[in-house]
Design a protein around this nucleic acid. Structure first.
Lengths: 246, 246
DNA sequence: CGATATTTGTACGTATGTATT
DNA sequence: TAATACATACGTACAAATATC
């Protein structure tokens, strides 16, 4: 287990400006992710951690609360605090995912995330084909016009792509789906940053055609077709961020 | 806005034992859910709330942190704390859902939840048909045998039903799906409690047959069939907790 | 079973840091 | 620059749940 933590202003020249409870959070989280603190074992008591890290109990409690909220710890009133196994971790928490990326323990989550994204986008397209309003459809059409415009740069095209999928979720008229998308978007961003993704010109043409077909399906109220096209689209995109074998 | 809160031990005879920050959390949450505190308006400052509720800033901060974590508030460092609109609320949080049930503002979420559950169960069945191990299949078979046993009571049958769906998610071998299921299960329990659900004998026969068909599809590695049967099964179940028009 | 020690939970007061207006 | 409002951190005290003797 980590013995000490970097004080917020250890070196006068630098600007860590790190909050104490964040430093404690990270030190303990890393030890759990790497298995230094094994599943099922007890975390030292609050007071022990106070002396070890040299901070007040307020700081320790704040750190522990965050660790517990992402499922790394199981706090039992009066009995102690215990380390949870990976089954308990909140794998949709961006902070946790980022740390898993840094400690090289994110591998096993990537396939799972791709499943979830596929499920999610396909459902949004299906529901949109059932419920999209004329306004929804107009907004999607406007976006597609801009995607086809040759003056649109690669960077803009990527953003329009994201926006298209966002509008699709909006057209599903399901608020929970919208909330889940927000969560997922952050997580996928973290994931994309880990590996490079190059969208070439051919990719762009295919992608625009796919979007067009999805929009047509929605306009024609054909949920089955929207579902099928979105599925093909997502599976195509998945190939471009295929991961190394786990 | 609520002027005062019930002190933890206002009446010596009773035992409220309510935590201060919970009381504050609830008082403010109710005002937001009911619209007494309108979207976009500013919450009073910490110190103002201290005097209003007669508690320390520690308590106010704890309450505000929880309110912010379920998306009811937007805290801006140095600028104030503002009330979020329903688009920001975490509609999968059981505590929030419970409160919405009590204040009669849960109506608009129910359809959304049914969508999510359908998406979720169908995906689990599809993935299970692709990935279930022999152990997974054996466990599902064992469960089905017990469901068919005439000696099984109604109560047991309901529990076995839940267990079957749990094993299905496990057989999908996707950890995030498993985590989402936990969240959803709590929420749906809250929802079920709001309306009565009577499972009659005929229902039970149909339900068991459906489960059998899902298991067959998994054993035969036919994801499409698993998907279709699960969809029909869920849509049948949805009819039994149809809500009043919103 | 009961008494006691340990460990986490709640709450207060205070001081200082930091971002916004 | 100054005032305001939220953020972090310390120390303390007592309550509540659990474990242990």
């Amino acid at each position: 287990m980590t013995q000490t933590l970097t004080p917020p202003d250890a070196t006068p020249g630098t600007r860590p400006k790190r909050k104490l409870y964040e430093a404690v959070f990270e030190a303990i989280a890393v030890d759990i992710l790497q298995g230094t603190l094994p599943t099922g074992s007890a975390l030292p008591t609050d007071s022990a951690l106070c002396t070890r890290f040299g901070v007040s109990r307020t700081v320790i409690r704040e750190a522990i609360q965050h660790l517990s909220s992402v499922g790394l710890l199981d706090v039992r009133h009066g009995a102690g605090t215990y380390i949870n196994g990976s089954r308990q971790w909140d794998l949709l928490d961006p902070q946790l995912l980022t740390m898993m990326g840094r400690t090289g323990t994110i591998g096993f989550v990537i396939d799972d995330l791709l499943d979830i994204r596929r499920m999610f986008e396909v459902e949004a397209a299906t529901l949109a084909a059932k419920r999209a309003t004329p306004d929804d459809i107009r907004a999607l059409e406007a976006l597609l016009v801009r995607m086809r415009d040759p003056a649109t740069t690669e960077q803009e095209h990527v953003e329009l792509n994201l926006e298209f999928h966002g509008l699709l979720v909006q057209a599903s008229h399901n608020r929970i789906l919208q909330g889940l998308r927000e969560q997922l978007r952050g997580v996928l961003t973290v994931m994309m940053n880990a590996r490079h993704r190059q969208a070439d010109a051919e990719m762009r043409t295919v992608s625009t055609a796919m979007h067009q077909m999805i929009l047509d399906s929605i306009r024609e109220r054909r949920p089955d077709r929207a579902q099928a096209v979105m599925l093909a689209h997502i599976q195509g995109a998945e190939r471009s961020l295929q991961h190394e074998p786990r």
